[in-house]
């Protein structure tokens, strides 16, 4: 668990470095997905990144055997979670990757504030769900 977390994190960090080094772009997934869907005319590379993002797990499954996680969320969690994640990442200009990895690494105070904020509200949300559900 510890070794795979670190190894996975290293891959994410290396991918973020390579995207900036070779293409000059920040690996912020919410923005990349937004561009791939809504602004493809201007940033067509975003779609190939998104395709890669799906191919990566397939590659791991091919090497390691398939190990799909169990998705047993309630459908209200899926719908509400998706809506808030989409809305919040657009309003706050980033998500876990853009703010949490790239932004913090760039030394952006904005990203440090954003990351602390979504960590805190995430913890509070899970705490409340634990009390209520």
């Amino acid at each position: 668990m510890i070794a795979t977390s670190i190894f996975g994190g290293l891959l994410i960090g290396l991918a973020s470095v390579c995207l900036m080094l070779f293409a000059g772009r920040i690996a912020g997934i919410s923005s990349i997905v937004y561009r791939a869907i809504f602004q493809l005319k201007f940033e067509s590379w975003a779609l190939t990144f998104v395709i890669g993002l799906v191919l990566g797990p397939l590659l791991v499954a091919a090497l390691n055997g398939p190990a799909a996680p169990v998705f047993d969320l309630a459908w209200w969690q899926v719908a509400l979670g998706g809506l808030l994640v989409g809305f919040g990442s657009r309003l706050g200009s980033g998500c876990t990757s853009g703010h949490g990895v790239c932004g913090i690494s760039r030394g952006s105070a904005r990203s440090v504030v954003a990351t602390l904020t979504f960590m805190v509200t995430g913890v509070i949300t899970v705490f409340i769900m634990g009390m209520v559900l």
Partner: peptide, 10 residues
Amino acid sequence: GAAIFGIGWG
């Protein structure tokens, strides 16, 4: 935005 994102994440 980050606060709303965190709620959805949780």
